[in-house]
Design a protein around this nucleic acid. Structure first.
Lengths: 355, 355
DNA sequence: AGAATTTTCTAAAACGTTTTGAAAATTCCC
DNA sequence: GGGAATTTTCAAAACGTTTTAGAAAATTCT
């Protein structure tokens, strides 16, 4: 391994100048910079990252922790995000270190790693409504960036999130404009912030349009196909069955489509289905039969912003300058259509059909 | 952050003694060791890992690289292994750094990371028959440990693997003892070493028992349910349909069971199904209907050995001392039974039934 | 008691960078 | 051509540990 000193010796310079020449400092003669760079390349010089880290006080390592049983089952996007982050971080010569914990206490691994003080910061995924990890890291003064955000408002830490409330409102708007007045909502697990946000958007959109959805048509569960199928199957047997389903994920929508098929209902003839689409390569909404109408916000899009925010946060930027909320695209495909005739009646508070 | 010097100052000792006291060196008075440890604890001392790494020349970081489209689709065990490894490595105060690459050239990310020289070693997953990564790392002299092994024999690098050939032989033996003579094999993708090893075991077991399976009943594809379903469906329409299926994964077996149901065949009455079970929490072979007979080798079991091997390898152990091959357990449940009467005939080379 | 060991500790070097403070070299201006 | 201003370079310190070489203190031996 050639080191700075070797290059310096070869050129009759001091290590200091060589360091500056390579790191683009202005106070070094352009001509010598050229020479230095040439020799560095010739000697195949690679700065020793560990040494750099020691003097800079930064480890260049960002931690991401998997809540083992929870995330794997609940959040298929975790690895998608991790993969994206690792490439982006590599651009900054930073590394993503991965930890898994199956502790009941989700804060425990953070406590341990913060004590070790070897990571520069954390990236958090899938925050819950009152996320313990966020509370701990805030109290500990450790830098972190959240993919998503806890609560319903704008918090005081850096985050990248989609506007979940808006996305639910867009979906309701589309369906209502098509004449639907009985819209069921197969939401994600209730403890997740995104689910709470979408629920809030859903409710407010309904209210704004004078609609009502009885609680038995609003469900919370893991983003899985059989949840969609089972929930839809029962709801469709109701005397006042929904004419439209809003699904928290394409996987849930797949279940709903299956249930519809089994019930002999055509989509979008008898039933409209709309879902939110994270654009995870495995489950493609376009390939659905019929192609799925979705609000679309590729989860991959979060990776760039999240890394940028982390880097800038470590460089001392203000949290308030590191908050982004993007709106999802509404993509109308074949799974939504006008409400079937004779089904235009809405639910009222006591969930009796008034047609 | 309290450092070594602070403790030394507080006790009127030199940093050297403090360092030795904490690291259990013999040449320090037991009494002073006690004092040092007490003060270290009182001052909440944590050694700066970066500094340790600089002097030791080790980074304490082990790399694991995801071949992005390939692994995600093909190897559901990747993250299972990663999660296990990260906990085990943590016991040694080492970190697992994760990288994802969607480059066509699977060696590229290794080349890049080896050049950076910041990782102590790599853990490789799912080797192919002639694995490029292994060849590169061997040539580069970089430490690595393989989960699995390339080729059919015993290679010359550290690895942990299950005896894939034996597992196929066990399965064939069980089925043949039950009277089956027409055994189909839904194997994994042909380029993976494990698939080649199982195929070899399958063939040799058949040969030893005077059986033959025509190539149209041996398939290679990704470990997915619909592969199992489709392949089984076609095979079952054959005039000399298999009476038993050997599946490379429980997921494939799930597909086979579906195909059997659709074809109106009962398992194990009309058809026997056996699979290899990695024991990944998501797909539980016990919960199958009927409960699945499997060769079982929990993938989690690899994590401990793999980390141990890596640690010992970095400590200078011989590769030949770091090779483990374990045999899978054969667990007989409800999906295997005696061959149906009238179906005892085997295939011959030209795949005509001789009964 | 003095020499020879052994035990216990220390000062300083090392790991490979970056950065600070100062010195040397060059350019500028009159 | 001489001083000031500017540009370019350097020596040394710093980051926080471990380790080497050796000194001091304590113990054992004769």
């Amino acid at each position: 391994m050639t080191k700075l000193k070797d290059i310096a010796a070869r050129l009759g310079l001091s290590p200091a100048t060589v360091s500056r020449a390579l790191n683009g400092f202005p106070e070094v003669n352009e001509q010598t910079r050229q020479r230095v760079q040439a020799v560095a390349r010739a000697m195949n010089y690679r700065p020793n990252q560990i040494a750099q880290k020691l003097v800079s006080g930064r480890s260049g390592m960002i931690g991401m922790i998997l809540r083992s049983p929870v995330d794997v089952a609940t959040d298929p996007s975790f690895f998608e995000v991790m993969a994206g982050l690792s490439s982006r971080l590599a651009d900054y010569d930073m590394d993503l270190v991965f930890h898994a914990s199956n502790a009941e206490d989700e804060v425990a691994p953070y406590r341990r790693l913060v004590a070790k003080a070897t990571l520069d910061g954390f990236i958090l995924n899938a925050p819950t409504v009152e996320d313990q990890r966020i509370q701990f890291l805030t109290a500990a003064g450790v830098p972190f960036v959240v993919h998503g955000r806890a609560g319903l408002g704008v918090p005081d830490y850096p985050f990248f999130d989609i506007d979940n409330a808006a996305l639910a409102r867009q979906s309701v708007a589309l369906l209502h404009d098509l004449g639907h007045r009985r819209i069921a909502f197969l939401n994600g697990p209730a403890n997740y912030a995104y689910a709470a946000q979408r629920l809030s958007g859903f409710q407010s959109a309904l209210a704004a349009r004078g609609l009502v959805t009885p609680t038995r048509f609003i469900r919370h569960d893991r983003l899985a196909e059989d949840y969609g199928q089972r929930a839809a199957a029962t709801m469709l047997t109701d005397t006042a069955a929904p004419t439209a389903f809003l699904c928290a994920s394409t996987l849930i929508a797949a279940g709903v489509l299956r249930a519809a098929r089994k019930a002999g209902l055509s989509v979008p003839g008898d039933l409209s289905v709309i879902a939110h689409d994270d654009a995870i390569p495995q489950f493609r909404a376009v390939n659905f039969e019929p192609a799925l109408t979705v609000t679309r916000a590729p989860i991959r899009d979060a990776c760039g912003p999240l890394t940028d925010k982390m880097v800038r946060l470590l460089d001392g930027a203000q949290s308030s300058d590191l908050q982004t909320m993007v709106t999802a695209d509404l993509i109308v495909r074949q799974s939504t259509g006008p409400v079937p005739v004779g089904q235009q009646g809405g639910w009222n508070e006591t969930s009796v059909v008034a047609d």
